[in-house]
Structure formats: C-alpha cells, structure tokens
Computed example of a mutant assay.
Amino acid sequence: MFRRLATLIVKELQNLFRHPQSARMLIVPVIIQLIIFPLVATMEVKNCTLGIYNEDAGTTANELVQRLAASPYMHRVETYYNDDDVRNALDRQDVMLVVKIPPDFSARLARGETARLQGLIDGRRSNSAQIAFGYVNTIIQNMNAELVPNLPIATAIVTRSLYNPSLEYRWFILPGLVALISSMSCLMITTLSLAREKEEGTYEQLLVTPLSIFQIMIGKTVPAIIVALAQGTIITIGAVWLYGVPFDGSLAVMYGAMLLFALAMSGIGIFISSLCNTQQQAFIGTFCFLVPAIVISGLLSPVANMPAFLQHCTQWNPLTHIIHIVQGIFLKGYGLEQIGMQLRQLALIACITLSISYLVMKKQSGT
C-alpha cells in the first residue's frame, strides 16, 4: 500500500513539474507575496495626510499645530482656511482627517476652561482614519499633560465622521466585495475556458473554424461579463437590503464602470490562459495575478501606506480603480465627473490587455 502511495505521489509531482510554466507559476507567486505582504499588509497607518483648519492665532493653538506637524506618522500636513476647502479636501480624499481649531481655543485654555477641537474623519476609510485619529489624540493628550500644572481642565476633542456616521465597517467592505467577487469570477471563467480547450484538444479545432480570433475572444469574454455583472447585482442588493448600506449614486454609472472593469479583467484572463496549456496552470496563473492585485488594491490597507513604486503599480491594477469607483458611488453618490479619471484608466487597461491577448492568440493560430 505504501509503495503504491509513494508511486502516486511521485507521479503527481512529475506531472506538476513536467512543464516549465507550472514550475515558474509555483515559484513566482511565492516571491511576489514575500516582497509585497511585509510592505503592504499592515494595519499600521503611515504616511498619513492631516488637514488643519486653525481659526485661532493664539500661542497654544500654534503650538498644537506644530506638534501635529512634527509627528512621524504625519507624512504631510495641509492647511485650510474655510469650511468649503475642508469639505472639498475630504471629498477628494486628499486628507484622511481634519483637525479644526476654533477661534477661542487659546483664550479658553488661558482662562482655565475646557477648549474643544473638532475632528472630521473620512468615514469611507473608517479603520485607517480611526487609527490616524488615535495618533492625533495621543499628541493632544501629551500636550494636556504638560498643561495640567497650570491648566487643570483638559482639552476635549469632538469628532464627526463623514459618509459613514456610525463607522460601520460593513459600509466599507461590502462595496469592495462587489468589485472583488466580480473580478474573481470574471478572471477564472476566461482563464479556465481557453485552458480547458487546450487540455481537451479542441483549441486547434476552434482556431480552424470560420470564427475569427476576434470573434473567439468575444465568445469567451461575454459569458464572463454576464456572470460578473450578475454577481455584482446580487452583492449590491444584499448590501442595500440586508445590511442597510446606503446607495447614493447611479446604477447606470456603476454598471458602466463594472462593464469596463470586466473587459479589463477578461483581457488579463485571456492573456493568462493563452500562455497556459492546462487548467491547472491557468488556475495557478490566476492565483499569481489575483492575490497581489487584491493586496495592493487599497481594499485591505491604504495605498498611501505603500512604497512609492507600489503606488505607481496600483495605477495599472483594475481593482484599485473599481474599488474607488464603487465605494464612491455607494457612499458619496459619485457621478461621471468624479470618477472620470478612473474610468479612463480602466478603459486604457482593457484596450491594452485585450490587444495583447489578441496578438498572442493570433500568433498561436499562425495567421
């Protein structure tokens, strides 16, 4: 029995490493994840951009501003001079939180009264914003401790979260799942479809049919898009009706963005499958792309936390753009004007990936 078992194990290992593509696809993902996970997968918030709206010209207020700006966790500090600038900065996600210092802050502390600050938090990034707010609160409490001998009444800070008042984490994660689940299904369907044709020996028969390469790509892409849109619809309905996540945007805009996203993912899936000869290789290739794409998408940790070279890589990651689009449509009511740049990037990625896939398939067909 053990001999037969050992023979089976050896045979499976031989099949696994018989093709050079399989060996590479087993090694490369490990290397990629080894590089990316320590840099990206962390709950610590670094390189945080803090906004300050200081209405007080007093000494204590200026000292607080200097302490906040000197914090090692604050990568950049933006100064604002009116409420409209503060709201626009939060709308554009230029800052994660804003500390507003009222005009009587220094005067109240000088009189020994409680001085209040206002913290405006971007509720769309509730977890990261709360961590960043904890850093700010620590700085304020340290300043209070130094003021205690003369001013026994501590400073109090009042917070208000925008777009997610109750800081429900499901409001953040469920819109992201619309993109995540759709990407997985779209990629798997297109990748395994062509690989299955090759494995069963019908790929060459498909190429000699009257169908052109372009028509074959359409036939492989359309079912994946339909499934992706159907799954996105189911998750959207569940998020709104079961979990109470607000949907403030346009369904037409969201489906248009999902269509571009599905085209981009289908192009990637067809390209992966064109390089594989078996479904096993295709599955490993999908895993090789999908896991790093999810990690650097901004769904698990903020893009601003990543090294500069990875932040540039995220611009070519379809998941990064669709997650920003879907969360904005759900929570902020984004329209075409707010997501125009992301839509153009998705369209560009779709054109590039589909074009490369077409050229690879055309070369393989010998036409």
Rank of each mutant, 00 (worst) to 15 (best):
Arg3Tyr: 10
Leu5Met: 12
Leu8Lys: 05
Arg18Tyr: 04
Pro20Gln: 00
Met25Ala: 05
Met25His: 02
Leu26Arg: 00
Ile36Phe: 02
Glu44Ala: 13
Glu44Tyr: 05
Asn47Asp: 02
Cys48Phe: 07
Thr49Phe: 01
Leu50Asn: 01
Ala57Gly: 05
Ala57Trp: 01
Gly58Thr: 00
Leu64Phe: 01
Val65Lys: 04
Gln66His: 04
Pro72Ile: 07
Glu78Arg: 03
Ala89Arg: 02
Leu90Glu: 10
Arg92Lys: 15
Gln93Cys: 11
Ile101Thr: 15
Ile101Cys: 13
Arg108Val: 01
Ala110Asn: 14
Ser128Cys: 07
Ala129Lys: 09
Gln130Cys: 05
Gln130Thr: 11
Phe133Gly: 12
Phe133Pro: 00
Gly134Pro: 08
Tyr135Val: 15
Ile140Thr: 04
Thr155Gln: 05
Ala156Gln: 14
Ala156His: 14
Ala156Tyr: 08
Ser161Val: 03
Leu162His: 11
Ser166Asn: 07
Phe172Gly: 02
Gly176Ala: 15
Val178Ser: 04
Ser182Trp: 00
Ser183Trp: 01
Arg196Cys: 13
Glu204Met: 11
Gln215Thr: 12
Gly219Ile: 13
Ala224Ser: 14
Leu229Ser: 13
Gly232Ile: 05
Leu242Arg: 05
Asp248Glu: 12
Leu251Cys: 08
Ala252Phe: 12
Ser266Glu: 05
Leu275Trp: 03
Asn277Ala: 06
Thr278Lys: 09
Gln279Lys: 14
Pro292Thr: 11
Pro302Asn: 11
Pro307Phe: 09
Leu310Met: 14
Gln311Phe: 08
Leu319Arg: 09
Thr320Leu: 05
Val326Glu: 15
Leu331Ser: 08
Tyr334Ala: 00
Tyr334Arg: 00
Leu343Val: 10
Gln345Ile: 14
Cys351Phe: 13
Ile352Leu: 11
Leu354Val: 00
Lys362Pro: 00
Lys363Pro: 04
Gly366Tyr: 08
Gly366Arg: 11
